[in-house]
């Protein structure tokens, strides 16, 4: 796939341009909307969780992370079906189509992160040094999302209602990890189920690095790395099997 790096680059840039081309605020909107969402949620929840330290900043970091997950997986899901000509009329390794969608979402999320830095500084009064390790966790998350994207995009070719199904799943999944609410309000008997959710571990690592100034715990790290590797493995396996009949189904 490395031979195709030019094409990956070109497709990613084309996708970025397409996404921001016709919107009025353009790229600024994608920065504004997560902040608005976080603002509303913070306002609603601040009266419920006022004893939680740094509730606002924890919320914003969680929302940012989740939005990357939601946007990237949705973009990947459409990755193949949105470029039918590149499947039916010419040969190229089809993983490229999913990779370029994932990369364009990644770039968007990195820009959001850049805007997040001054906000963290403003709310905390300082920047934890561990924030420099952000690229590592973000890269691991990206790999997990790319693997999941391969899975979703290949199934979507055959099952066109997957986009709606995934939308519903995403809106439910956000409640299955301590993004909108802190883990402290979760009753003890449910906590172990939260820990089964890999997203929970990702959230902890993001918050440790960006807010608490702590290095992530070993458990968290092992879970997220394993999850990313497994998703990549399964994603690639399923994709290479299913892609054989893409040109017949599109």
């Amino acid at each position: 796939m490395f031979e195709y790096r030019e094409l990956i680059r070109n497709l990613t840039i084309a996708e970025l341009k397409n996404r921001y081309q016709n919107t009025s605020l353009g790229f600024l909107w994608s920065l504004l909307s997560p902040f608005l969402m976080a603002l509303v949620l913070w306002f609603v929840f601040k009266n419920l969780f006022k004893q939680e330290p740094n509730f606002a900043i924890n919320l914003i970091v969680g929302i940012m992370m989740w939005r990357f997950f939601a946007t990237a997986t949705s973009a990947c899901l459409q990755g193949i079906v949105s470029k039918p000509n590149l499947v039916t009329k010419v040969y190229l390794p089809r993983q490229i189509l999913v990779l370029s969608s994932a990369l364009s979402a990644l770039i968007g999320s990195l820009l959001e992160f850049v805007v997040l830095i001054p906000i963290i500084y403003f709310l905390l009064g300082y920047l934890p040094w561990t924030i420099i390790l952000y690229p590592f966790i973000h890269f691991i998350f990206f790999l997990a999302i790319y693997g999941l994207g391969l899975l979703l995009s290949s199934f979507y070719v055959y099952f066109r209602d997957l986009s709606q199904i995934w939308e519903v799943l995403i809106s439910i999944l956000i409640y299955c990890s301590p993004i909108i609410y802190p883990i402290s309000v979760v009753p003890a008997y449910l906590v172990k189920y939260y820990m089964l959710n890999p997203i929970t571990h990702f959230v902890f690592i993001y918050r440790d690095l960006m807010i608490n100034g702590q290095l992530p715990s070993l458990t968290n790290l092992v879970v997220v790395v394993l999850f990313a590797l497994i998703m990549l493995l399964i994603g690639n396996l399923v994709f290479s099997k299913l892609q054989r009949r893409f040109a017949e189904e599109i």
């Binding site: 030019e6 094409l7 070109n10 084309a14 341009k17 397409n18 081309q21 000509n85 590149l86």
Partner: peptide, 20 residues
């Protein structure tokens, strides 16, 4: 013209099509 994107300029499209 496989891969031509209508929102991009001809120049950009030549690069994309070329890489395809």
């Amino acid at each position: 013209g496989v891969g031509f994107q209508s929102e991009l300029t001809a120049e950009e499209n030549v690069y994309i099509y070329g890489s395809i």
